[in-house]
């Protein structure tokens, strides 16, 4: 299935959770905040939040700024 991650389409396997996606991209879950279809996903439900075809996902983190 296809989801949109940070503005780009990506093909992912069916039944993947948010946590599974992060692990597949070598992203440490504690370092990011996730927005799924404009709703913030609490980090304690990353593992139980499954992705669906057409989902829009934002994966963000803190960077240097003033």
């Amino acid at each position: 299935m296809v989801v949109v991650i940070n503005g780009k389409e990506a093909e992912i396997v069916d039944g993947l959770s948010v946590l599974g996606l992060l692990e597949s991209r070598q992203i440490t879950p504690e370092t990011v905040v996730i927005e799924l279809n404009k709703d913030i996903v609490s980090s304690d439900v990353f593992g139980s939040t499954l992705l669906n075809d057409g989902d829009h996902l934002e994966i963000l983190r803190f960077v240097g700024g003033g």
Partner: peptide, 10 residues
């Protein structure tokens, strides 16, 4: 100290 929030560079 300030920080900004941005998309992770995949």
């Amino acid at each position: 100290i300030t920080v900004a929030l941005r998309r992770v560079d995949l």
